[in-house]
Nucleic acid binder design. Sequence first.
DNA 1: ATCCTGCATTTCATCTGGTGGAAGGCATGC
DNA 2: GCATGCCTTCCACCAGATGAAATGCAGGAT
Lengths: 267, 267
Amino acid sequence: MTKTIRSLERGLQVLKALNAAPISSLQDVHRLTRIPKPTLLRILLTLEQSGIVSRRLADGRYRVSSGLTRLTRKPDRYDRVAEAAAPVLDRLCQKVSWPSDLMVPAGDHLEVRETSRTQSPFMTYYSKDRVGMPVNWLLSAVGRAYLAYCPEHERKKVISLLRKSDRQENWLARDQKRLDEVLSETRERGYGLRDPAFVGGPYGTQAPDGLAGMAVPLRDGSRVHGVINIIWPRAARPIEDLVRDCLPDLRAAAEEIVAELRGHKSV
Amino acid sequence: MTKTIRSLERGLQVLKALNAAPISSLQDVHRLTRIPKPTLLRILLTLEQSGIVSRRLADGRYRVSSGLTRLTRKPDRYDRVAEAAAPVLDRLCQKVSWPSDLMVPAGDHLEVRETSRTQSPFMTYYSKDRVGMPVNWLLSAVGRAYLAYCPEHERKKVISLLRKSDRQENWLARDQKRLDEVLSETRERGYGLRDPAFVGGPYGTQAPDGLAGMAVPLRDGSRVHGVINIIWPRAARPIEDLVRDCLPDLRAAAEEIVAELRGHKSV
DNA sequence: ATCCTGCATTTCATCTGGTGGAAGGCATGC
DNA sequence: GCATGCCTTCCACCAGATGAAATGCAGGAT
């Protein structure tokens, strides 16, 4: 078992303390962290030389400097979803034994942002490099689940984009009546399924993957942050079995992810 | 001499590397940092348990998580100025032996955001707790330097605010003609001086501080980030002496601070 | 099949480098 | 004047960080 590094932990602890009290004397940090002062001096000197904190000339108090800000990346909306989903999908996979993907919109397709395929004992084709894989909007379980629950204007935008596409896989975008039927069915059912004629494979290919899947959206109010699914070899089990056994878990997972995202916001 | 903590330095180094390459395998981080992998594993585990990085389920790669974002504070405009000014004012004080303040607008007054009074060997009244001290807009050297160079609309806003004030120290706000004269003089001169009748002391008091001062703005294009000054006991030296000896240094300091602020932006 | 390569992870003997109690300075308050 | 509170330095101790070497593991080539 790998051990953690205590001195690094303490350094981060000091950083957190300085963030809770943005301008602090050594004494303040000491009160907050209970770390002995000589040690704090060394930690703060280290942080200072790394450009993470600086000292106020006026009174020598410490403050987090813009050095930390420069360490922070633009927070991509979907990155946060992926991060929140990862541990939940991991647990879900442990529980139901079948893997899941997290998919998010990406223009004329959805793309995989996270997956537990590597975790599943039964999924031999666990190609890594799965992240970023494009998936069809209108025929896949995930695309249908997303479109069925996302806000009206977002749905319209996607469909009008697909209507302009000349790929034959997007034919459904031009059959508004049939598409509305499909989406209503999805809403009534409460989860997304593949089109019976859809064989899977990345968007732009027709490589049959032999899988079946069911998908639920990550709904937060009227917003949809993405979709998660459960997939399994089509030959292994009929859809009804999986729905009966796993749908409640899948739904719980979706709710957990959304709750996590909500929590972050409030903090 | 206090030493720094190597393991903490390395932890921060990893954080910087992960920021340069937001999603990295252990190998990637190793290439970037040249730190041995077993050590990296321990560092990354520590960062992970502190919520600073997380691992992608799909392939186990590391990514900076929103935990870091939560460690970052809203960047107050003037805090960045203070931070950039601190080392420059420190050096300036070492060179000219007289201390400086950094002042920024704060409603109906300016306030001290940073000061090198503690550094000066000659300034016995170095009260700490100087940060936050309010200073008069229209009579002080700093206020005049700021108003002389800040954008029109900002000047108008300040003056109209002061016109509503019933403090007698703000009488000049109601004498537009005299005020314009004062500001023109300041511009021609190139630096701000106290009103001859102004005795100093915080805004709202008339406590004579026995000081003299000269002030230059931190000009960045049409913007003014704040003002820095040099102060000395009025009895010690006539203004002309200080202008001759120190004004070039003061101006250079102002330019250095502005350059630093510009640099941060571009990075 | 088998070998090979590249990467992640674990182990463990070595000894560096982090630690914190004690003491020294240096202001300010009484 | 002395007392107090805080920052800083010193230094002897040894926990804890370190990294070379070994192990494990998956994918690609032959």
